[in-house]
Amino acid sequence: MELEVKDFIHYLKIERGLADNSVMAYKRDINKYIHFLQKQLSVTAVNQIDRDKILKFMYDLNDQGAKTATVSRTLSSIRLFHQFLLKDRILDYDPSLHIETPKKSYQLPKVLNSEEVDRLLSIQPSDPLASRNKAMIELMYGTGLRVSELVQLNIHDLHLLMGFVRCLGKGNKERMIPLGDIAQEALTVYIEEARNQLVKKTNTDALFVNQHGRPLTRQGFWKILKKIAHEKGIKKNLTPHMLRHSFATHLLENGADLRSVQEMLGHVDISTTQIYTHITNKRLKTIYKDYHPRA
């Protein structure tokens, strides 16, 4: 079976033109698959492979504790391998044809509760950097921006009088997100009283800058957020994405509809946004269990 695997790798490189990393990933999956067939099931030729043998390999992966994503990716590699064997007429059937891909398991995102949000946002704008920090975090929690979207904002992307921020998301798709009163106030203070002091003579349109007047980076924001969380006594491993998760979850908990949240988050597919309904449903079950006399 080594020859078929070698031909398959050649096919991926030459005919499919896949990148080296992709080819190596396929090679690892197929080598593991073939090794199992040879050692555990005494398979010596590809024409001995059937659906039952593939399923035994998949069950073995599962027994070893492989994640659902790993099992799904491996099955995709096996399918492509057997499609190649069929295409090159090495086999006249595809034993992987009707094997279902395992359903993806979602890990519920961690979020801040309302009390933790209040603590995080209790920043006093006592100096230019503190004013910037408060404006950034209020904006991120108030809009659900990704950290990459936040640090790429220009001063012209803010429309404070209209109460919107313009954002370019994934795939350069533009969206307009409403600003709450508190975020607007924090941003106004930052722009009118602090930003010029930080920018100094630097020529930049970046909305948020570091202490040297240069555009803030993702890593820079991450460090600032970690430092503030530590100072405010927040024990959770706070990340920029946790603020985004908190934004979506708190909106849904307070009655927002899923389609509006999808639009504000910039999700192309609503199924991506539906992960947050699991969080709110879980919370409802907890409330029911804690407070209903018949629970």
Rank of each mutant, 00 (worst) to 15 (best):
V199N: 01
T68S: 12
Y106G: 06
V165P: 06
E185M: 15
R73L: 12
H98Q: 06
L158D: 11
L75D: 05
Q184N: 06
T101R: 13
S122T: 10
I90F: 04
M176T: 14
S148F: 06
A135H: 02
S148D: 03
I78E: 06
V71L: 12
K110Q: 02
L139V: 06
A69Y: 04
Y141S: 14
A186G: 02
D94M: 09
N133E: 06
N203T: 13
D118N: 14
L80C: 04
L108M: 04
L139F: 04
T74S: 10
K110H: 06
N62M: 07
L160M: 09
L61W: 08
K87S: 11
Q184E: 02
A66N: 09
T188W: 07
R175A: 07
L112N: 08
L108P: 02
S72V: 03
K103P: 01
Y141L: 13
L75Y: 03
S122H: 05
T188N: 13
N154M: 08
K110A: 05
A206S: 11
V147K: 08
M140I: 11
L158S: 08
E193N: 08
H156F: 07
S96M: 08
I90S: 08
Y141R: 13
E115Q: 09
L108Q: 02
I99A: 11
L121V: 05
L86E: 13
V199K: 03
K201I: 03
P178K: 15
D94G: 04
N113F: 11
A130T: 05
M140A: 09
T204F: 00
V165H: 03
I137C: 02
D63F: 09
G163A: 11
G171R: 14
